[in-house]
């Protein structure tokens, strides 16, 4: 029974990674850049939800919505101010800028909210499920996280396959120039991608802080890096890859903590990544990059 419990908790943690990884993978797929500030948008999302719900006493659903709006605006603003002017610059310049934005967000949070951890009260009011005569308890947070991840995945897939803006994203991810020749607003599509990724980051922030209820300005950085690993693991640029990579990573991490060593868990996670990349350099579901001849 304890194995199932570890597994379910791993899937739940993995669901958070998957939701964050979506932001990395979509932005990479479309803007061909790694947005290392993505993890810190999660942290801001957590603080906004904390302030609106615990501070102002608003209902959790409203707090989450406000947090999504704030993160969306933040994500689009970051893209416009920090990344858009660098569209023609070298990938290295963009990467360094992203790391700079990450530190900037952390330090702004430090300035505004202080370094002391905030005790985040769970936003989830779903009761736990008790199975097998009390031997297996699945918390409300776990259930909501897994359900949220599934709903987001299905919703996002439908959006990309069925909507005009979604198809524009596919076109831009494949060939920006050709997409523009179709009449697609490439900059607008990139901004939309940042908006979606950041809104998802807000949800991830709330779910993460509900399950692990301490909030500091550095809350987003480790999950951010792990979600980036998940995205690479699954194949960066691929949405099903982010899902698969996130879940696998969460499960491996949780099972390692349970059966091997909790100190070694992160090392094992990154070790698995190295092995996967040695065998499949493009990740599990990654596309082979074809060289044009």
């Amino acid at each position: 029974m304890s194995f199932i419990s570890y597994l379910v908790n791993g899937i739940s943690l993995g669901s958070v990674y998957a939701i964050i990884a979506l932001g990395y993978t979509m932005v990479y797929g479309i803007a061909k850049m790694l947005n290392f500030a993505h993890g810190d948008v999660i942290m801001i999302g957590g603080y906004v939800a904390f302030l609106t719900v615990s501070g102002m006493g608003l209902p959790p659903v409203l707090g989450v919505l406000i947090s999504m709006v704030v993160c969306t605006v933040l994500g689009v603003t970051i893209e416009k101010i920090a990344y858009k002017p660098l569209r023609m610059a070298s990938p290295l310049a963009v990467l360094i800028t992203a790391i700079g934005v990450s530190y900037l967000l952390q330090n702004i949070a430090l300035l505004l909210f202080g370094a002391s951890p905030k005790a985040f009260t769970s936003m989830v009011s779903v009761p736990a499920i008790v199975l097998a005569d009390g031997q297996l308890t699945i918390s409300g947070e776990t259930i909501v996280t897994i359900v949220a991840c599934i709903v987001i995945m299905i919703g996002l897939n439908l959006f990309i396959k069925k909507s005009k803006a979604g198809r524009a994203m596919l076109a831009v991810s494949e060939d920006k120039g050709a997409a523009q020749l179709m009449g697609i607003n490439v900059n607008g599509t990139i901004a939309l991608t940042f908006a979606i990724g950041s809104a998802l980051a807000a949800i991830a922030g709330v779910l993460l802080c509900s399950a692990y209820p301490t909030l500091t300005p550095y809350t987003g950085s480790m999950p951010g890096i792990k979600a980036f690993v998940a995205a690479v693991f699954g194949g960066i640029g691929s949405i099903p890859g982010a899902f698969l990579g996130g879940i696998l990573l969460g499960v491996i991490e949780n099972l390692s903590k349970a059966y091997i060593s909790s100190q070694m868990a992160d090392a094992i996670v990154f070790g698995v990544l190295i092995v996967v990349l040695l065998v499949r350099p493009t990740g599990i579901l990654g596309k082979n990059i074809r060289e044009k001849v």
Partner: peptide
């Protein structure tokens, strides 16, 4: 901007075709 020119009635078949291979 290029995407607005398209709606004025100009189409461009680019060199190397550049079809969307995954679609």
């Amino acid at each position: 901007p290029g995407h607005k020119i398209v709606s004025l009635g100009m189409a461009h078949v680019p060199e190397g075709r550049r079809v969307f291979a995954q679609l």
